[in-house]
Simulated assay, not measured.
Amino acid sequence: MNSHALAELVFHLGRIASGEGLVEGLTAAQWAVLRYFAQANRFSRTPSAFAAFHATTQDTPSQTIKSLETQGNLTRTRSQDDRRSVQFVLTEKARCILTNDPFESLVRAAGSPHPSVQGHFASALQRMLGQVAQERGKPFGTCTSCQHLESDSCSSEEQVSYGCGFTSEPVRPEELDGVCINFIPGKIMALKRSSNAVALR
């Protein structure tokens, strides 16, 4: 199979999984917004970050976000760091809706190959995604493989703390796998665990 045919398969899978037609009364664009804000960390829950993640203009998602607000699926708050900036958080209603996400059909299909095949497939897709993101000038990723992630262990209580070198703010263990707009590719960190740490999703 040549590279063009492989890219077509990946693209077609994405289109199917994104949800064609109305599911739970939501359009494919609305599903995309809900999925993004569900996985984004607190530094990246903004319209501009969503636009960068999906490689669109900042004006593109504005109406979709407004409609989800009106439906009671998103709530907006002012950023604590920049009062001119707003952040969006999913409501409980939206989290319930996400349990019927059409994307889950792709999740089930991804789990069908043997685990050894899944590992190779995941590595290949990560490389593809990284190359495309670099060419477009804005890679996204999670804290665990970001150059900005810092950690410190307190041996007396065996507590582990994490911080973001870019924002100079602490990062909670449960946030480590959230998508971040400030991501810079780096070496994957071996996470230190403590009895108080929250397991990653």
Score class of each variant (00 low, 15 high):
T167M: 07
E157T: 15
R193Q: 13
E150Y: 01
S145P: 00
K187D: 07
C164N: 08
P170W: 08
I181S: 14
F183V: 03
S151P: 00
E169T: 12
S194H: 07
Y162M: 03
H148Q: 14
S145K: 05
I188E: 14
E174A: 14
R193N: 12
G163T: 08
G165P: 03
I184D: 09
R193E: 10
S194A: 13
C180G: 06
V171K: 05
G163K: 01
G178A: 13
S145R: 02
S168R: 11
K192H: 11
C180D: 02
V179L: 15
K192N: 09
C180L: 04
N182K: 12
L176N: 06
K187P: 03
C164K: 08
D152T: 11
L191T: 05
H148I: 03
S194R: 04
P185E: 02
F166H: 07
F166L: 12
A190Y: 01
G165R: 00
G186K: 01
E169W: 04
L176G: 14
E157A: 12
I184K: 13
Q159H: 14
N182W: 11
I181Y: 05
H148V: 03
S151C: 05
C180A: 03
G165N: 07
S156P: 10
E174K: 11
G178F: 03
I181E: 10
A190N: 13
E150N: 05
F183L: 00
P170Y: 08
S151Y: 07
I181V: 13
C164T: 03
V171P: 07
E175K: 09
S195A: 14
I188P: 06
C180I: 02
I188Q: 15
S194D: 15
V179C: 10
C164A: 06
F183D: 01
C180Q: 01
E158N: 15
V179N: 04
S168Q: 13
S161A: 07
S153A: 12
K187C: 04
G186D: 06
